[in-house]
Amino acid sequence: MTVLARLKNLAARSPWLYRINAGSCNGCDVELATTALIPRYDVERLGIQYCGSPRHADIVLITGPLTKHVLEAATRIYAEIPDPKVTVAVGVCPISGGIYRESYAVCAPIDQYFPVDVNIPGCPPRPPAIIEGVAKALEIWRQRL
């Protein structure tokens, strides 16, 4: 194993998470906060930190059906996240639209606009399901480094 590959293996153990709320009802955001904060689902074990700035992020969690109103802002924030990055859609809304599907006010599914890598369905998904999805995103993040 070369030095570079070894360093990449180390780097893969430090993914920082950033949330984009693309018009979500806050259900998924509450579950994300639960996953992040309560000792029962300690995500810091995986080296995960939630960061406030898109510039620090590695894994982007997008919630909400991407309403027309936030489309531009969400695209701009997404572009500000430095490469390499992994995109995770949390909840059914960003994946397919959920109950807002085919509404005139939403742009779901978001994979029309962002290169989504992992989907976590659920309305909202359970915290363990979110951790499972983030663990899947880590596999992609390791390859992408």
Binding site: A11, W16, D42, E44, R45, G47
Partner: peptide
């Protein structure tokens, strides 16, 4: 009451940031 990151986590963070792009 959590498990917490490994003791070497800050090193991982530094190495990771080295692989990212500066904007």
């Amino acid at each position: 009451g959590r498990v917490g990151p490994p003791l070497t986590q800050p090193f991982f963070d530094i190495v990771k940031l080295g692989f990212k792009r500066t904007m």
